[in-house]
Simulated assay, not measured.
Amino acid sequence: MIPETAPLDAELHGIPPLRALVVEDEKLERDALVLLLHGFFPGLEIEEAGSVPEFERLARERSPDIVLLDINLPGGNGMLALEELRGEGLGAQVMVVTAHNTLANLNRALEDEVVTLLLKPVRAQALREAVEKCIRRREEEIHRTARIEALERGLREALEELAERRGLPSPPPGIRDDAVCSPVRRAMAFIREAPGKASLEETAKHVGVSPGHLSRLFREEGIRFMDILKDARMQRARDLLLSGASVRRAARESGYGNVAYFGLAFKRAFGVTPGALQRGSAPPEEDSSEEGSGS
């Protein structure tokens, strides 16, 4: 029997229905996940994708609140696609659903991108608990963002009223710009100081705003949070490798607990694997298996 979900549904009253995206290439497994989600959370709007291109298209078109993501997918790597979408501002709560658990500490390795890791075959209760966690976190973020935006509107209106009374330009020059840019400047300083710790959630907590709000502030400045973070992490990793650090240490201290995933991201950024950079130059075939495939 599917457990009752009335208390959780009641808590979601007052916000639009949340959207979930199930990304899984095996149709039987995808159908099973969708069936469980419909049973546990009848209020969720659920869409499906079976490949990386479909995942990217639906993520951009539908802006899902929750994503269940397989790693090995036709058309690419699920985690690399997620990284790209994060850079574009995707604020979804993400669960990785995979049959592979060969890398130690994978949960920590992916902590900047996902809420949890679910191993196939997925147990119904584990799925329910993970999705409940995602729903609660997403709901809290929506409410925090709404409160922040209401405060900003109130501040702007108060400043405009004050300016009108005193015959000043409306709003007073610089005040709104400082209010918007300050969290971004503080976030960028935090990222430069500690790229290994500066996930979107930790950075938002450090500057005192919600993750979704911080991502929006970055976009308003014409930059993307994940681009800044990725660049800072890659530069830190490059410096460590050139100073003689091991690939594992460079991955860990730049924020990538998953060495294989770090290898993919590093090669994408610099065109060479971490090991090849250490050696100065090496034929591609000597590096093809060094960092592993990651998923």
Rank of each mutant, 00 (worst) to 15 (best):
K267R: 08
R238L: 15
E45K: 10
H213N: 10
L214Y: 00
D287M: 14
R166V: 11
P172Q: 10
C181V: 13
G280E: 00
V207L: 02
R176I: 15
G76Y: 02
V34C: 06
L200K: 03
L229G: 03
L119E: 04
N101V: 03
A20M: 08
E290M: 03
L162E: 14
A124L: 01
R185Q: 11
D177E: 15
Q93E: 06
G50N: 10
H38A: 08
P17N: 07
V259P: 00
A198Y: 04
S243K: 09
R268K: 12
M95D: 06
A130S: 10
R156F: 12
F40G: 01
A187D: 01
L168V: 04
D25W: 13
V207E: 05
A32S: 13
L240E: 08
G208W: 03
M226W: 14
R156P: 05
E61L: 09
A124S: 09
G208T: 04
Q235C: 09
Y256N: 02
I191S: 05
S243Y: 05
R153H: 14
R236K: 15
R108W: 04
S289A: 11
S63G: 12
A99R: 09
L69M: 11
D239C: 12
D239S: 15
L28V: 12
G255P: 10
K133S: 06
K205T: 07
I223G: 09
V259I: 12
I2Q: 03
R138W: 04
R30L: 00
R138M: 04
R62P: 01
S246K: 01
G196H: 05
Q93W: 02
P211L: 11
E221T: 14
K267E: 06
L200Y: 07
Y261H: 08
G78D: 07
A198C: 05
E152F: 13
L68T: 12
A245Y: 00
A81N: 11
R137E: 09
L200G: 04
N107Y: 02
Q278A: 02
V22C: 13
I142N: 09
R236P: 10
S295A: 13
E141Y: 06
P284I: 03
E161D: 15
A163P: 06
E47C: 10
F40D: 02
D31R: 15
R216E: 01
P171N: 14
E253L: 14
S215A: 12
K120R: 13
